[in-house]
Every structure is written in C-alpha cells, then in structure tokens.
C-alpha cells in the first residue's frame, strides 16, 4: 500500500474544515465581539425599557416656552439638561452633554491611533495615544459625576428649598424618569469606568514592555473594541435621553 497516493484537492477544501481561522480573527478578538453582542442586548433592553415607560406616560403638549416641570407628563429633555459647570444659573440647553459626547468621540479616535501605532510595533506611540485615551475616559467620568451631583444636590429655589432628583423623589417629571436616568447613565458610566481600568492595564503592559516581548499589540485592539463599544452606546444614550 505504500505506493498509494492520497490527493487532496486544496481548491475544494472548505475553510470551515479545520486548520485555518475561517473568520480571519483570533480567538480573543472573536470572544470580545461575542461579549459585545451580549452587552449590546443588555443596553438595547435598557433603552427599549426607557421607550416603553416613556410612551406609557403622557407627553407634554403645550408650547415649549411655557414648559413647567410636572409629575403629570414626561419632561422635555432640553429643559432638564441645561446646566454647565462654572456657569451657574445660565440656561445652556444640551451644551454640557454635547461636550461630553465630543470627549468620548475624541477618545475613540486616540484609541484607533493607539491600535495603529501597535500595528507598527511603535511602543512610544502606543504609550502616548493610550494615555490620551485614558485621560479622555477620566474626563468623561468626571463630567458625568458632575451631572449626577447636580441632579442629586439640586438647584436652590427662591424660597430656600432645593429642586433635586433622587431615586425616591423627582420634581423633573414622573418618578421613573429619574430612576431610568440614573440607572442607564450609571450602567454606561460603569462601563466607561471598566474601560478606563482595562485601558490602564494594557497601558501598564505596554510601558513595562510586556506586549513588545509578546511580539504583537493585539491586546490594544481587543480592549479598543470594548472602548469603541462604550462610545457607541453613548451615541444611543445621547439620542434617546437628551435629543428625542
């Protein structure tokens, strides 16, 4: 039998037949994608819940300039989100959240630049861009902390009382409005926090030269996927909470 030849036709071999990576992505990258799909479901469920609860409450019908906060109808977002740090009492609707959105987009760009530097094995470049990304994440979290404390601490009224929202009381609108605001932006903020921690972990691995010794910077790419996802979720939170 030693003279029997086995001919394998390479052209007809399926890429799913084993021996190759059919999606041309590493195990770690695929698993990150699958995790993000599940996380996308979680955030979709939360935002759809927001939609359902909002549509089960009456909407404000009158003219925008006559709008007053009431528990009877859902508030108009641009009337709620109008405060900016250091500009106390100035009415700047949606300005602060616009700044936050831009910070997160910028940190997404510095993240792709870190990935690009990693592909070139440029350790200094990865360090520089990762540092900017971490800085962007921390700035975003600080903005969110300010926004939360603004709502919780409240605005002082003429009679000395405070106009403030919490999980148990909310003068801006129906009770669920505050509950959903704190829950959804909080859940997103916690994702940003985990992202900053992960970013710092890979920044540390870059600085100590671990990734260079491994021989590639794919870890930056994987954590980058997570970071962009956090930006992606914010795009949706921004639309459904602040614009619509």
């Amino acid at each position: 039998m030693s003279d029997t030849a086995v001919i394998v036709d390479e052209s007809k071999k399926s890429i799913w037949g084993g021996g190759v990576a059919p999606m041309k992505a590493s195990y770690g990258k695929l698993m990150m994608w699958f995790f993000l799909v599940s996380d996308a479901f979680t955030f979709s469920a939360l935002l759809i819940t927001y939609g359902v609860i909002r549509f089960s409450h009456p909407a404000y019908e009158g003219a925008i300039k006559d709008f007053v906060f009431s528990q009877e109808y859902w508030p108009v977002p641009e009337k709620v989100f109008e405060a900016v740090p250091f500009l106390h009492g100035v009415n700047l609707p949606l300005a602060f959240v616009g700044i936050m959105t831009f910070i997160l987009i910028l940190s997404s760009v510095t993240m792709v630049l870190a990935v690009e530097a990693g592909e070139r094995m440029d350790r200094k470049g990865v360090e520089k861009w990762m540092l900017w990304t971490i800085l962007g994440g921390i700035t975003f979290l600080s903005c969110q902390a300010w926004e939360w404390s603004h709502f919780i601490h409240g605005v002082e009224q003429a009679d000395g009382s405070f106009f403030h929202a919490s999980l148990s009381a909310n003068p801006y609108g129906p009770q669920n409005f505050a509950a959903l605001f704190f829950f959804i932006t909080g859940f997103h903020g916690f994702h940003v926090l985990s992202g900053v921690v992960l970013n710092f972990a890979i920044f540390f691995q870059t600085v100590t030269g671990k990734l260079e010794r491994v021989g590639h910077y794919e870890m930056i790419e994987k954590v980058g996927l997570y970071w962009h996802f956090v930006d992606l979720v914010w795009v949706f939170v921004f639309t459904f909470f602040y614009l619509v």
Binding site: K24, A25, L30, V109, M111, L225, L232, F236
Partner: peptide, 18 residues
Amino acid sequence: AYYIVSEFMHLGHERRSL
C-alpha cells in the same frame, strides 16, 4: 453607529461571516 462599528471597530473590513 455605522461609522463607529465599521471604521473604528474595523468590522467593515472583516470577513463576511464575521
């Protein structure tokens, strides 16, 4: 969302199956 997923997350340049 399309621009973030397709370009930043690079999904637009991956294999069709992915």
